[in-house]
Amino acid sequence: MSIETRDPLQHPEVQLARGRHYVGAYVVSLLLTGGPLWLVVRHLGTPRRLMIVVIASAAALTLVQGYFWLRLDFSRTQRWMTAALVLFIPLVVMTIGLTAWMFATLYARTMIPTLMHAPAFGH
């Protein structure tokens, strides 16, 4: 516990706020969600291509919101937060990715196939 002597309003994390960045990220966020939405509901592309668009725009949005909203960069103020996030990303990817991988062919390998072809489970 320490005694805060300086004016807390001058704290670098308070001073991070940038109105123009916030608005810019807002506009880009709407474009990057609205754009893929339009493509998807209009079926403008094969599902595979559209999927790539969705993934790419989600990735781009992550960067945009991370940088311009959360202001994650390598400055003195923010670098530990950025580092922590960067360290967590592989864990998130592993949790989801490895799980998806191990279950991808599981139903086909175990007893589920008979069920899968049963009429009740078909489309």
Binding site: P90, L91, M94, L98, W101, M102, F103, T105, L106, R109, T110
Partner: peptide
């Protein structure tokens, strides 16, 4: 230690690659 958890259920029947 974060990438080994399936060794607790190898017998689940995931593929050989997994």
């Amino acid at each position: 230690s974060w990438s080994v958890w399936l060794h607790h259920f190898f017998t689940m029947g995931a593929g050989p690659g997994v």
